[in-house]
């Protein structure tokens, strides 16, 4: 398969970026999107040019490092996958593919397609945990947890922190990311103890970092590689309002 790639190139955080056009040919349809970029980078290295920088690590859809906005969609045209799990068979031979970095004020571009997502760490730092120290905890089976609640908590906990929700949202809102963590703990008795403080601190941090506001458009849910549901945002709203009002 042959493709024309239009890729965002930017030397560093302060440089003014631009789109560059590249051609890759003879790509196998079983090739993953990132392997296709590897092939492009090999071509660039052969020509003594600077390869395209992009974040990637596990290449099996779990670390959340990849952050490519492909043809208008975070992680590209396939659903429920990250860019590393996207295969070229999802494109048509001869396609032009536009690759951009995540765009959001709290995700500044570092280089080319690499963005700084440390704001997500700041949000977790503000309260995305159960405040217990190592040791001195009760036996794991002391508190039975209804299976359905544990499953809902797991649905939320599946978040890989890639930031596709922010990238997809027209408002660059981080609500789905925050909701996933708040919701996970809200469903478990261990997390309920400090549920109020947690939700207030995490929402305050999210606002402070300059993410947009949620307008319930649902783009986050549609693009989330782990298919985290909007119902978690409703739960976040509920948790927040009950913490504030009640």
């Amino acid at each position: 398969m042959d493709f024309t790639l239009k890729i965002w190139r930017q030397e560093n955080a302060s440089a003014k970026g631009r789109f560059e056009t590249y051609k890759v040919t003879g790509i196998s349809s079983d090739c993953s999107f990132l392997e296709m970029l590897d092939i492009l980078n090999q071509q660039l290295i052969d020509k003594f040019e600077i390869p395209v920088c992009f974040d990637h690590d596990c290449r099996e859809g779990i670390c959340g490092a990849c952050s490519l906005y492909i043809n208008g969609r975070p992680h590209g045209p396939d659903s429920a996958v990250t860019a590393c799990q996207l295969h070229m068979r999802k494109f048509k031979d001869g396609d032009t593919i536009i690759v951009e970095p995540w765009r959001a004020r709290p995700f500044p571009v570092i280089k080319d397609l690499v963005v700084d997502r440390s704001s997500f760490d700041r949000i977790i730092e503000a309260g995305g945990y159960v405040s217990i120290n190592t040791g001195g905890v009760p036996d794991a089976n002391t508190i039975p947890i209804p299976r359905a609640n544990a499953e809902t908590a797991m649905d939320a906990a599946a978040c890989i922190g890639c930031g596709a929700c922010v990238a997809a949202c027209k408002n660059a809102s981080a609500m789905l990311f925050v909701a996933a963590k708040v919701s996970q703990f809200a469903m478990l008795p261990q997390g309920r103890v400090e549920a109020k403080e947690r939700v207030m601190r995490m929402v305050a941090k999210m606002d402070e970092l300059g993410f947009g506001n949620c307008t319930n458009t649902g783009a986050c849910e549609a693009e989330c590689p782990k298919q985290i549901s909007l119902s978690h945002i409703a739960r976040l709203n509920r948790e927040y309002l009950s913490a504030r009002v009640l």
Partner: peptide
């Protein structure tokens, strides 16, 4: 025990 107390959603 530690992980459950941390809110790890085991099956």
């Amino acid at each position: 025990d530690q992980c459950v107390a941390q809110g790890v959603p085991f099956a």
